[in-house]
Write a protein that binds this DNA or RNA. Sequence first.
DNA 1: TAATGGCACTCTCGCTTTGAGAGTGCTAAT
DNA 2: ATTAGCACTCTCAAAGCGAGAGTGCCATTA
Lengths: 345, 345
Amino acid sequence: MTELTERQKTLLILIIRDYIESAQPVGSKRLAEHYNIGLSSATIRNEMGALTEMGYLRQPHTSAGRVPTEEGYRYFVSQMMNQAELPASIQATISHQFYQARPGVEHWMTLAASVLANQSQGVSVVTAPHTEKAKYKHVELISTQGRQVLMVLVMAGGELSQQILTLAEPVSQERLSQTASRLNGLLAGLAVDAIAALPSRADSLDQDILTIITQDMRRTSESVSGEIYTDGLTNVLSEPEFAESDDARRALKLFEERSTLQDLLARTTINSNVGGLQVLIGGEGEWEELRQCSIVLARYGVPGMATGMLGVLGPMRMSYARTIPTVRFVARLLSDLVSDNIVGE
Amino acid sequence: MTELTERQKTLLILIIRDYIESAQPVGSKRLAEHYNIGLSSATIRNEMGALTEMGYLRQPHTSAGRVPTEEGYRYFVSQMMNQAELPASIQATISHQFYQARPGVEHWMTLAASVLANQSQGVSVVTAPHTEKAKYKHVELISTQGRQVLMVLVMAGGELSQQILTLAEPVSQERLSQTASRLNGLLAGLAVDAIAALPSRADSLDQDILTIITQDMRRTSESVSGEIYTDGLTNVLSEPEFAESDDARRALKLFEERSTLQDLLARTTINSNVGGLQVLIGGEGEWEELRQCSIVLARYGVPGMATGMLGVLGPMRMSYARTIPTVRFVARLLSDLVSDNIVGE
DNA sequence: TAATGGCACTCTCGCTTTGAGAGTGCTAAT
DNA sequence: ATTAGCACTCTCAAAGCGAGAGTGCCATTA
């Protein structure tokens, strides 16, 4: 694939921009009229021919305008990756929303998903901060009724896990508190492997709880991501390219089922770092359901401590110019939030 | 509106059943051929005319078959309300799923939503158990880092609320535990009003936490329902009646926005009791977005202690015969779960 | 020699036309 | 009371048709 001339670059970007706005194949005449490039439609036609030859454009049928190929989008995105800051006014609005939201990971995630969905008019997904090597921080045991006990386990990084246990026999709150306090002393800062390696406890209640804690921490460690929040599922339904086919339905289904979504996130972001930003165009051959879609993804958090993902799904002709800066900005914002509020070891 | 003859009843139910299956206007000839009622198409035509006259049926255009009106559906539903148990095998499958799910309200809700969505092929919604008069049960304060403190508040009925607090200055875990323990002693079993009426505490940390607890409990008391879980958003998109118009999108949007959904649940179930079951057909004039939809709703839980809602949204021609028993069964199941695991006072 | 104007050609899209099919209501006969 | 028959109505899908938009190519221009 040969180099693009300066003029071809300008033209290509113009075409893609126009197509993103209008959702309709763009022709040479329309281009020449609407934008005052100093070129006639004939010249543009020639260049379009060249761009088509090189694989950046495509014509739906012999006599329609041109439409960007995945390759074209990829070029387009690579061009705007570096620049493109979110307007200060929008930054302020978003920051403000976070500032006055109720504190708590849960609310931040919901808010982040909502902001992303609204700004980008796409489907957003945010995963809660998560550590791969869970470390013990604190446990609480709260007697509820009879043999029921509510266990709240806090891990370093801030992840929480709650569970209702049913004990073999009723136990007083006092005894539960003592057990919790003993375990807190014993386990503070330990990773799951270290805990598993500990000798059995003499007290049988202590031992039971310890076992459950280990299970719980293992489960947390093994899961690929924290809880998943989505928003804007319906946004994408109004896009014209999804009006007819049920491609949209299938893509949404993918996003609704957490397990497959987790899989997708895991596979695609295995090598993406905090601060980085990744754009998947057309499913990249991997995901049949996403043939017509693009995803903008970023990782946020404090590497090694707790990180999460956030992203936006939209039609392939989504407004990258709007989505990419938004994702980047929200990622930074969440990173700050995490590092400010992280639960230390 | 005069009485229906026995034959008219049979016919009406047959017609609706057929329409629910086929999604197409049903004509007299088709009816006479497929079901062996001992009647000719002409007779059926006459009866259909009568039923149309009475408002139970409608013809989309002069020469198409008949389609049920909302009134028709209402009659149909009222007929099946009493009978209709879920097949034992399905009951067993569902129970089994709950049995082997991880314990915890959060997981039960997710599972309930999933079961409802799958069984009914509609959009499901489940709200977590919630009490209107929140009573204090327990608080935990966990020091995280510097001035950050994680507060976990447990209320009678089992509702949880977590929050990250930022104190004015760092406080040791020991002092936090003492505060928590003092407050637990002081507040056990109290309702929010009683707590608000308490005299100020001497210790300023105690007082600060107390204020936050009060706020939190008030917020919980005021909210109409517990957290909302949904599933199956995409199910409804494959229905033929939503293929073209964006009615589906609007209905889904309604379900995606928790605030409006809460409003809907609040308004429609204000007078429905645990055990009862309510079917909203065509939005009942109240909800423009739901003109083409029906909702099957039930309340579950222990009245006075903690109750929640669950329901299914589908097209007006949803399979009531499948949905109604499922909703009823899951409601019973959740009620049992709540009363078994309720956090006592 | 790069850019342009002109022209013949192609293909889609929206419009109307048309005929088959399904369903109805009415009436006369059983 | 039920049914067979018939004329009538209306939708839906297929087919035909013309306008419009866009293309590629070639001769001409600056």
